[in-house]
Amino acid sequence: MNDELVELIVDSKRGKNFHYFAAKRKAAVFTLLVVASTVINALISSKVLSDFESIRYLSMLAAICSGVVAVLKLGHMSSLHVQIGNAYVSVYRDLRLLRARCNSGLLTMVQLEKEFALLLRDYKKAAAMSSQAPLGFIDNWARVLGQLGRRFSTKLFGAADL
Score class of each variant (00 low, 15 high):
4 E>K: 07
8 L>P: 03
9 I>H: 10
14 R>N: 08
14 R>C: 06
15 G>T: 04
17 N>K: 11
17 N>I: 09
18 F>P: 00
18 F>L: 04
19 H>G: 14
21 F>R: 10
22 A>I: 00
24 K>G: 14
25 R>L: 07
26 K>V: 05
26 K>R: 08
26 K>E: 07
27 A>G: 05
27 A>D: 07
28 A>C: 10
29 V>K: 02
31 T>L: 08
32 L>W: 03
35 V>L: 13
35 V>S: 09
35 V>R: 02
36 A>W: 02
37 S>G: 13
38 T>E: 01
40 I>W: 00
41 N>F: 08
43 L>N: 04
43 L>W: 05
45 S>G: 07
47 K>Q: 09
48 V>F: 07
49 L>A: 07
51 D>G: 01
54 S>Y: 14
54 S>M: 12
56 R>W: 06
56 R>G: 03
59 S>N: 15
60 M>F: 10
60 M>E: 04
61 L>W: 01
62 A>T: 02
65 C>K: 00
65 C>Q: 09
66 S>R: 00
66 S>D: 03
70 A>F: 05
71 V>P: 02
72 L>D: 04
75 G>Q: 13
75 G>M: 08
76 H>I: 08
77 M>P: 02
77 M>I: 11
78 S>K: 06
79 S>K: 11
81 H>T: 06
82 V>M: 10
82 V>H: 10
83 Q>H: 12
84 I>W: 10
86 N>S: 12
88 Y>Q: 02
88 Y>R: 01
89 V>P: 00
89 V>T: 13
90 S>I: 07
91 V>T: 08
94 D>W: 06
95 L>C: 12
95 L>G: 01
97 L>P: 04
97 L>R: 15
99 R>G: 06
100 A>M: 07
102 C>P: 01
106 L>K: 15
106 L>E: 15
108 T>D: 06
109 M>Q: 09
110 V>T: 15
112 L>A: 09
119 L>S: 01
121 R>M: 15
121 R>C: 12
121 R>E: 15
123 Y>D: 01
123 Y>H: 13
124 K>A: 13
126 A>L: 11
127 A>P: 05
127 A>K: 08
128 A>R: 10
128 A>W: 12
133 A>L: 05
134 P>M: 05
134 P>G: 01
135 L>I: 08
135 L>W: 00
136 G>H: 09
138 I>D: 14
139 D>A: 12
141 W>M: 09
142 A>L: 05
143 R>M: 12
144 V>Q: 11
145 L>Q: 11
146 G>Y: 06
149 G>Y: 08
150 R>I: 04
151 R>L: 13
152 F>M: 15
153 S>K: 11
157 F>C: 13
160 A>S: 09
162 L>S: 11
